[in-house]
Design a protein around this nucleic acid. Sequence first.
DNA 1: ACAACATACAACCAATTGGTTGTATGTTGT
DNA 2: ACAACATACAACCAATTGGTTGTATGTTGT
Lengths: 109, 109
Amino acid sequence: MAVTSADRADALFHALSDRTRRDILRRVLVGEHSVSALAAGYDMSFAAVQKHVAVLERAGLLTKRRHGREQLASGDVEAVRSVASMLEELEAVWRGRIDRIDALLTEEN
Amino acid sequence: MAVTSADRADALFHALSDRTRRDILRRVLVGEHSVSALAAGYDMSFAAVQKHVAVLERAGLLTKRRHGREQLASGDVEAVRSVASMLEELEAVWRGRIDRIDALLTEEN
DNA sequence: ACAACATACAACCAATTGGTTGTATGTTGT
DNA sequence: ACAACATACAACCAATTGGTTGTATGTTGT
């Protein structure tokens, strides 16, 4: 049941691994968009786009806010930064900065 | 046939979306390891680990070098940085810095 | 020379993914 | 009031994924 940081990393990188989702994220980082406004931009069904939005939401990369009958999605830049941090940690490993301390901070916590 | 930057991004984020692969990447960023040395660290078959290494290699996150009968894998920190850059670009979109110029640099080039 | 080792890859399998259409449920504007 | 709209989600499907075992092919150390 415990959601580990590895689970979070899995969900974040998986969410980012699809180009449609990266594009949606780009748009909602600029500003709020309803699910249908987003869906209008892609050559696939509304349901497909709605699922992509749900994947981004579950990963924490966007949040939704009700506004009448619409759900307005906005990108969460903090989540994007948390992914960037994971990569910086990898760069730090490369630089040899971390060595053994690394065992405390990585994957299984 | 053309490998777009979107294809590269797909491969990079997909490669990073598995915790075993992130762990392998961490190890090969510290130093060279043969495929069997890597495989010894995980509770799965040699073949499974060999496939994970191949996924990382295809994404460009590690390179292999022959040494006798071994293949020594090392992490490519530049590839890690290129992923970090994509995230920085997303943060820049959020800051509103990019606006329309963005259209030139993103996804489809 | 050759047995043991290191790797690659094929064939297979169950689970997951990214798409589809259809249906149910709220919300709104006239 | 109610038709039209916005969303969510179920059921389905083909393709991909992450694992397995087995086999082929090099390379090495004695």
